[in-house]
Design a protein around this nucleic acid. Structure first.
Lengths: 188, 188
DNA sequence: CTCGTTAGGAACCGCTTGGTCCCTAATGAA
DNA sequence: TTCATTAGGGACCAAGCGGTTCCTAACGAG
């Protein structure tokens, strides 16, 4: 046929995700993006449509790589206490300082890009569902409706935690807070 | 002396705040900014240093105009239930869709601008203090430490609420959630 | 009225932006 | 070996960026 591609698409997207995640969409210009992806303009525009479409692909990549993993981690958690399963959401990740890509995308890009808005909401929804599963399995609270409500509250806390973290707001220890929220310890 | 200024500085900053708040820093270019402020390039650079310094001034303006008002509203609230005082934080404001300027700034600008990071944290801190005052006055929970913790949780919920709102995440009714959080109704 | 001073505003600046073009290199099928 | 096809990569592009310059207009002090 013809000359084969010299780079791995998935690996390039991974590099793009890294820099979009860290810097946001507008702050990442083509030179930076190309460097992060490890390719030159020619290869980029041969393989992809444009900067915006790659941004969306990085969201999908984040979904497959991070969200799916997190959901699996939550749903597969065997700890007795729900708070122990949910704590990882409130500790600094290895990518700490980046914040959460979903949160960044929601604030920076979603308002002017319906596809991104939909995608971020979809990912958030899946996280919420996973959180609810954690609560359901352990029979937290008194009803499914209450657990759904609680899952939504925890989801909002998570995004608040991520948003505030980007300004350097000091990370408290959230384990006690979660326990209290889930009524796993008697409120003193 | 000399020719007097034809526009009102504070009013111009107010227009700038409006557009920075709605669109963010990078997405707002000079033509848009000038239109929002109601002046031309010449007047702009006579009166202000540059785009970035005006952005910071809009943060200060937001502080004086919105944060201060909100803090006063919280601290002056006479309702018996804390949740009734805090509910306004979780309803759509007239500027709904803009999100919260502090949250936007934390996510978009703070990571690469220490002055902005500090300013946003300061405003968040003042909101937190006001929330704690609301809780203290009504003796929510069992200790000052617990109320401080709860105030921080509510603050995080608020930012999560604002961040997610920017993607169009549907606004639930938060009054019941707040009541539950503050243990104003017996957990069923 | 005169004149020094400052605001207003348009033209202009160098630079960066995202994206295209086009030539060359590398490949596999015939 | 030949050749059609596609990747790689640098040069190039128009448009937009934030910011400056400079001329004119409008004022107030004298």
């Amino acid at each position: 046929m013809a000359r084969p591609r010299e780079f791995d698409i998935d690996q390039a997207i991974d590099g793009a995700m890294e820099i979009f995640w860290r810097q946001g969409f507008k702050a990442t210009n083509m030179p930076y993006l190309l460097m992060a992806m490890g390719l030159t303009r020619g290869s980029f525009y041969k393989a992809f449509e444009d900067k915006e479409s790659v941004y969306f692909k990085t969201l999908e990549h984040y979904d497959e790589k991070v969200v799916t993993t997190t959901v699996a981690m939550l749903e597969g958690c065997t700890a007795a206490k729900a708070s122990d399963c949910l704590m990882p959401l409130f500790s600094q990740s290895p990518k700490s300082g980046y914040g959460c890509f979903i949160c960044n995308a929601m604030v920076e890009v979603a308002p002017e890009n319906p596809k991104v808005a939909e995608k971020t909401q979809d990912m958030a929804q899946r996280l919420k569902t996973a959180i609810k599963t954690v609560l359901d399995k352990r029979n937290v609270g008194s009803s499914s409706a209450q657990r759904a409500d609680l899952a939504d509250v925890i989801l909002h806390l998570y995004f608040g935690f991520q948003a505030m973290g980007k300004s350097g707001w000091p990370h408290e220890d959230w384990s006690e807070r979660l326990k209290r929220l889930l009524e796993e310890t008697a409120p003193a």
